[in-house]
Design a protein around this nucleic acid. Structure first.
Lengths: 147, 147
DNA sequence: CTATTTAACTTGCTTTTGGCAAGTAAAGTG
DNA sequence: CACTTTACTTGCCAAAAGCAAGTTAAATAG
C-alpha cells in the first residue's frame, strides 16, 4: 500500500463499531461491564455464556488497546486485576440500550421486562442517565480499591 | 440436557442481538441494507470490505432464518435475487444510528459529518424517521420488480 | 439456435480463529 | 511452609474464514 491508497471502509462508523465489538465475546464483555457491573477477570470468566480463558485474555487485551477498558492492579489484593470502562465505553450505553429495546420486542424468550422498553421509548435520556449512574456507582466503589 | 435445564443466557437481550448480528459480516450486511440501500447479492459482494462469496451466501441464509431478510426472485430478470429487510431489521435502525453517533465521536478517521451526530442528539426521532423513509423508498422501488 | 455473459451460488483447499484441558507464576492465606 | 486464589499461557483439535475455481440457470448477442 502506498501512502495515497487506503482501505476504502476507513471512515465508516458502522465498520468502526464492528471492528471494536463486532464479535460475540466483545459484545458480551461490554454488556458485562456496562450493564452487569463486572470488573474482574474471574467475574467475566464465570459469566453464563462460558468464555474460554484464552479467548477472554485476548479480548480484554483488544478492548484495552482500542481504548474501551483500562487495566488496574487491585491494591488490596495484588493478584486481582480490575478492568474499568473508559468514557468511550460508557458512551456506548445509548446504543446498547437501543439494542435491548429492539431485542425486547423481537425475542420471544426475552427476560427483559416490557416496562424497560416502554420507559426507554417514553424518556430515553432519563433511562440512559439511570444506567450511567449505575456504572458510576460501581466505578466509584471499585476505584477505592485500585488507588 | 433435560427439559428443565436451559442455557442460562436465554432471555438476555444483548446476547440475542449478538447472536443475530454479533459478527463482522452480519453487521456490515445490515448496514448495507439499512443505510446504503443495497438489496442484491452482487451489490453485497462488491462492498468495500470485500466479503468472500461463500461467507456471503452463509450470512444471507442466516439473516433470512433469523427473520431479518426475505429472499425474492426478481421477476424481470430471474437470475437476480433480491434480499429485502423485514420490519425486524428496519427496527434496528435506532440502534445502528446510536452506534454511528458513538463512532462519530470516537473514531478519529470518521467520514460521517459531525452534523449527523448533532442532528441525532437534538432530535433523534426525526433523524430516525428520515432514515426509515429512505428504506421505504428503496423498498418501494425494488418491490415493483419482484412482484 | 448457438455462444457468450451475467448472477448466484457451491466446492475444495489453506489459513486463521475458537474451544477445551492442562499448566504456570505471583500473590495471599492458614 | 504448604495450599489456595487469581490471572493468565500453552498445546492440541475442531470450526470458521479467506481464496480460487467450478457449476447452474437465465438472459443476451450474433
Amino acid at each position: 500500500m502506498t501512502k495515497t491508497e487506503k482501505a476504502p471502509w476507513i471512515g465508516c462508523p458502522v465498520r468502526y463499531a464492528a471492528g471494536i465489538f463486532g464479535d460475540k465475546w466483545s459484545f458480551v464483555l461490554l454488556r458485562d461491564v456496562l450493564l452487569h457491573g463486572k470488573r474482574y477477570y474471574g467475574e467475566f470468566l464465570t459469566s453464563d455464556e462460558g468464555i474460554a480463558t484464552n479467548v477472554l485474555a485476548g479480548r480484554l487485551l483488544r478492548l484495552e488497546q482500542s481504548g474501551m477498558l483500562t487495566r488496574h492492579v487491585d491494591q488490596h489484593k495484588k493478584s486481582k486485576i480490575c478492568y474499568m470502562p473508559t468514557a468511550k465505553a460508557r458512551a456506548l450505553l445509548p446504543a446498547f440500550l437501543a439494542m435491548m429495546v429492539w431485542a425486547t420486542e423481537y425475542d420471544k424468550c426475552t427476560e427483559a421486562p416490557q416496562s424497560f422498553a416502554a420507559a426507554f421509548r417514553e424518556n430515553p435520556k432519563e433511562t440512559i442517565a439511570w444506567y450511567e449512574a449505575e456504572i458510576d456507582r460501581v466505578n466509584a466503589k471499585v476505584r477505592a480499591l485500585i488507588v
